[in-house]
Design a protein around this nucleic acid. Structure first.
Length: 585
RNA sequence: GCGCCCGUAGCUCAAUUGGAUAGAGUGUUGGCCUCCGAAGCCAAAGGUUAUGGGUUCGACUCCCGUCGGGCGCACCA
């Protein structure tokens, strides 16, 4: 259990005793009482807001209440000293052993340090990538892919039951275009001179592979036939091929979805009709005419009676059409049906990672999900902004082979999967990101991937040197956990430990906010603290990790170093980045 | 015009979801290698958090207005 909760419980226990003893009025709401690390380390190890939160309902001066609480808190085992500060914060320090215990916990838990039960095993569905199967993965897809995949890992670490899902549209006009292009490439594969790819078809040369595969598979059976005959089989063939290609691309950055759902299936298996019926039975469907959009000049607007969904009952700005005027389904209908399918599969949260240009997707889905789940399920959408791909500050030249895009494969081959993933998480999703091929492999502190990896490698460097110094030393986590941690008495030691003690809190708050990029920020902080410690050892020999004359202290420091490496590895694991034990090059 | 997102150091971005003196990197200035990896570290400097109100013990964070930017705006995917 995370150490802050432990002391939060102690604080609540004290408050309850005070209520029982009449020092505080009964019926106080203690849910807002928190124990957190103070912003300034100088204030203490932990701080509680209890006195400030309760002063009004308890009718007491916050400082006085704080003094009362501080006095009682001081008697709690493990607490070294307490004080009241500012508007009524109760700050307290723990006995160093309390902190040092964290090192043992990290060593024993390994990469699972920071795992939480916050999610209570609730089912969460994260849908990401979801690119249409018409081409290879490219720069435009990578960011959402990494954000979604990392969020999935993060939520798993926080105790949710996560499904990684990919939804692709194989029912729209784009896949028909794909089929036509593939037919052309197929004729080419069979020796025909097709000339330039006509406008409106996909120019990328990657479709040559599909054409060739089709030629090998079906021979010349589609030559000279009418489109009506070959459209469906070739579309199917091409879509399957592209999905296979996308899976291979995603594998390059370690992304593996568990469930692939296609739109055609949702339509053909009747889910869509079923959902419409359900909405009708709920009396949420009617025939009506919407007012024109406010203020916008619509030259072609004319009042039309459409089949409408009463989404405004669920917070939407207006009702929405589910059928076009010709009676066919509006485009949001399959999406609604798909979400209904997810609801039926038991998800409490449905998270969707989309590009910023999808604007009001959330507004459209939320009412439908609220209606269809009876308010039980929630949708969230993470919108991510564009990635600008640069090389030394200059826009990267586009590749002909892939159809004038920068493919994921090129990115990974040039800088490695770890750097790609780390960079994609280095900013909040909604801000634009520059991905520079040169910077991503630069070996300096400007490069956050390098900086964090370097800290990890340095840890292992220390461990290697320890073995040189004491060839028979046992560096296993189990052995190091038995080190004499009390020797870690310097402020530098404790700063690192406190930071690592906060890892479980970061995991939980990042998971709750659905913000995977915070992991990268935390790791950067930790790496920075470690590099700082390392350099202090240059001036002050008592702060070296390895001190030949003092093996007892050295072993304790080795435990600390191993713990740092473990927490970094734990964070990188969430990000899907492999930690390195040595830098090379 | 309506809705959503955003506005933080010269630049690129954080800020433990309402906490105490708003932090990193870059750029500028000055230091640190007989020493576990200087691929790094330390120090100085840089701010009325776009702006005006409000909510409360306390606001970058929540609410309202204004200014500025991005995206989306009946039935097109």
């Amino acid at each position: 259990m995370n150490i802050f909760y432990r002391y939060q419980e102690e604080v609540v226990k004290i408050l309850n005793t005070m209520i029982a003893g009449g020092e505080l009025p009964a019926g106080l709401d203690l849910s807002r009482v928190k124990v957190e690390p103070p912003r300034e380390a100088a204030h203490g190890d932990m701080a509680t807001n209890a006195a400030m939160v309760l002063s009004k309902p308890a009718g007491k001066n916050p400082r006085q209440l704080g003094e009362l609480l501080a006095a009682k808190l001081k008697a709690v085992p493990g607490v070294a000293e307490t004080s009241v500060a500012g508007p009524g914060f109760v700050n307290f320090r723990l006995q160093p052993e309390q902190w040092l215990e964290i090192i043992r916990e990290i060593l024993v838990s390994g990469i699972h340090y920071g795992d939480s039960k916050m999610g209570k095993g609730e089912k969460v569905n994260i849908e990401y990538v979801s690119a249409n199967p018409t081409g290879p993965m490219h720069a435009g897809h990578v960011r959402g892919a990494v954000i979604g995949d990392t969020l999935a890992s993060l939520l798993e670490k926080a105790g949710y039951d996560v499904t990684r899902e990919y939804y692709f549209n194989d029912a729209g006009t784009q896949v028909d275009v794909l089929a036509r292009t593939v037919h052309l490439r197929y004729r080419e594969a069979l020796g025909e001179n097709i000339g330039d790819i006509p406008n409106g078809l996909y120019p990328g040369e990657y479709l040559k592979d599909v054409g060739q595969a089709l030629a090998k598979f079906d021979g010349d059976k589609w030559i000279g036939k009418d489109e009506k005959i070959w459209m469906e089989p070739i579309r199917h063939f091409a879509v399957q091929f592209m999905i296979g290609m996308i899976k291979k691309d995603l594998d390059l950055i370690g992304i593996h979805h568990e469930v692939f759902t296609n739109e055609r299936e949702v339509v053909e298996n009747g889910t869509l009709d079923n959902v419409f019926k359900i909405l009708q039975e709920m009396d949420l469907i009617y025939q009506g005419t919407l007012p024109p959009p406010k203020g916008k000049e619509m030259e072609d607007w004319e009042p039309t009676e459409l089949t409408l969904f009463r989404s405004s009952r669920f917070g939407d700005s207006s009702d929405r059409p589910l059928k076009k005027r010709d009676g066919t389904w509006a485009y949001i209908m399959p999406d609604i049906a798909y979400h209904y399918d997810k609801i039926k599969r038991g998800y409490k949260w449905m998270i969707n990672v989309l590009g910023k240009d999808h604007g009001n997707y959330l507004d459209k889905m939320r009412p439908a999900v609220a209606a269809l789940s009876n308010g039980q399920a929630k949708v969230d959408v993470i919108f991510n902004a564009m990635v600008k791909v640069l090389k030394n500050g200059e826009p990267v030249k586009l590749s002909k082979r892939s159809g004038n895009i920068i493919t994921l494969r090129e990115m990974v081959e040039e800088v490695g999967a770890g750097a790609v993933r780390f960079f994609m998480l280095s900013r909040t999703p909604d801000s634009e990101l520059e991905f520079d091929f040169v910077k991503a492999v630069e070996q300096s502190k400007d490069n956050p991937v390098f900086y964090v990896q370097y800290a990890h490698a340095r840890c292992y460097s220390v461990l290697r040197n320890a073995r040189t110094m004491w060839p028979d030393i046992d560096l296993s986590a189990g052995a190091l956990a038995k080190a004499n941690m009390k020797r870690l008495a310097s402020e530098e030691d404790l700063k690192l430990v406190r930071l690592m003690a906060g890892w479980p809190r970061h995991v939980e708050s990042a998971a709750e906010a659905h913000e995977s990029h915070r992991i990268a920020i935390y790791l950067h902080d930790l790496a920075s603290e470690f590099h700082g410690f390392w350099n202090k050892g240059r001036d002050d020999t008592t702060l070296r990790f390895l001190i030949e004359q003092d093996k007892d202290l050295s072993v304790a420091r080795l435990a600390l170093v191993k713990a740092v490496a473990t927490v970094i590895a734990s964070g990188l694991a969430v990000m899907g980045v492999t930690p390195v034990e040595e830098m090379h090059g």
